[in-house]
Design a protein around this nucleic acid. Structure first.
Lengths: 237, 237
DNA sequence: CAAATATAATAGCATTACTATCGCTTTTGT
DNA sequence: ACAAAAGCGATAGTAATGCTATTATATTTG
């Protein structure tokens, strides 16, 4: 962290603090960032869930893999569903932070939109700021499991606690850039969620159900497809 | 059934048989259409899952609600996940059948595309042909639970057994109409899955997470949005 | 250095997701 | 018409899951 130039450090520290706050504290019983065990719970769960899937994942297996006990994990998260909520909320807060950083001081709204989508639509490098988090595996987890964070019967309760705020804020952020380019566009939220969820699905389909997608070139092919989609739609309106 | 004109009856009988065949027989141990208990399993599970969510749903609760036993239900489906696969496969086969019917003898490809999307993007009336199935509740179930049918670690195995064929065929069918209108369009499958999954999500968001969507007018508002999206994109290419 | 806090270790419990067995009834092939 | 087969309900049982409780031992903090 000390290697960065002052201005960068200041911006990053500010956002880093914000990023922590973004992960709503009603998700956890004890903040996993606050201890070594907590950080092992996060890194271990990313590893295990992305490897074996959320259904097969249990706190007992997690505890074993990080050399702790089931009861200790329960002191941080009251259920494995809450832990999934934490991981996805963290991911969207992280994406939002990177978008703010990638679009700062860029005057063209269209350029900012393309950069925001580039970050929001997947395929990430590692972020040295968070050594306990493997961003590649976390993205893989988000693709396969994140919809289970809201596709359940407790969604309204959880929503009332503000747990989905980091995702909503991200959608809002990108939606606002769209409105800068085309203030007449009526459906910015629908468009943003359609392309974010769409990109997730296409990544999954490309790996498992190729007949549901099309061959696109390069690892950013899906991103390019949806960037083009957004531009075409807002300009046609 | 006897009330229909001969030509209609012939077409429907043919498609009805096809529709049964579409639900891949490796999904079930015993065909639920073949007995009264089987049909009660289907109608009871649609009722229960859409009411309490897939996670809370158990074969024990289902058995109780239809006046049977857990062991008897297991004679039809080897797991609750297989039952979910059956319900979603049935749904997509039903959508495909209705698209074939709605687009038959319509010369304009654009008109056929709009009709196909109108059927594929949700909001359905009852279909008197299937008295044991409440199509409204089934659609509600598909919106909230269908992605769990493929978002799991067994997806490749299940896919090898051909279980997702009815969804793939539906995507293929609509994709082909797109190519009739615009043979140059490179990504018909991506576009079709994007709008189908997108419409599902928007229906869910409208009910539970309104900040992730936009106010659209009328019960077909979401459908109209995506119909317009598809037309705009294929014409812009 | 005492008090508070964090963690590990163990036990326990209700529920879930199945499997197995048995006997009664209905269907089916001949 | 009748035996064989299949379908179903009833009951029991099992390993795993999701979670709670208790106690003892470290570790941190005031």
């Amino acid at each position: 962290m000390l290697l960065y130039l002052p201005i960068v450090t200041i911006i990053m520290d500010g956002l880093y603090a914000n990023l922590r706050l973004q992960v709503n504290d009603s998700i956890y019983l004890k903040n996993p960032e606050s201890s070594d065990l907590g950080q092992r719970i996060i890194s271990g769960s990313i590893e295990l869930i992305s490897e074996m899937g959320f259904e097969s994942f249990t706190f007992k297996k997690l505890a074993k893999s990080i050399g702790s006990t089931e009861a200790s994990v329960y002191r941080y998260f009251e259920s494995k569903h809450k832990l999934l909520l934490y991981l996805t909320a963290w991911y969207w807060a992280w994406v939002q932070y990177r978008i703010l950083f990638a679009t700062a001081n860029v005057p063209s709204a269209e350029e900012r939109l393309m950069r925001a989508l580039d970050v929001a639509l997947g395929v990430h490098e590692v972020d040295i700021q968070f050594p306990h988090i493997d961003e590649q595996k976390l993205y893989h987890l988000v693709v396969a499991e994140s919809s289970k964070a809201y596709l359940n019967k407790q969604v309204d309760e959880i929503n009332d606690q503000g747990v989905y705020t980091s995702y909503k804020d991200l959608v809002e952020l990108i939606g606002k850039i769209i409105l800068e380019i085309q203030p007449e566009y009526k459906y910015p939220h629908m468009l943003v969620t359609t392309v974010i969820e769409g990109a997730n699905h296409q990544h999954f389909f490309a790996e498992h159900l190729p007949r549901l997608t099309d061959v696109v070139c390069g690892e950013k092919g899906i991103t390019k497809y949806y960037q083009n989609m957004v531009l075409t739609l807002i300009k046609a309106s």
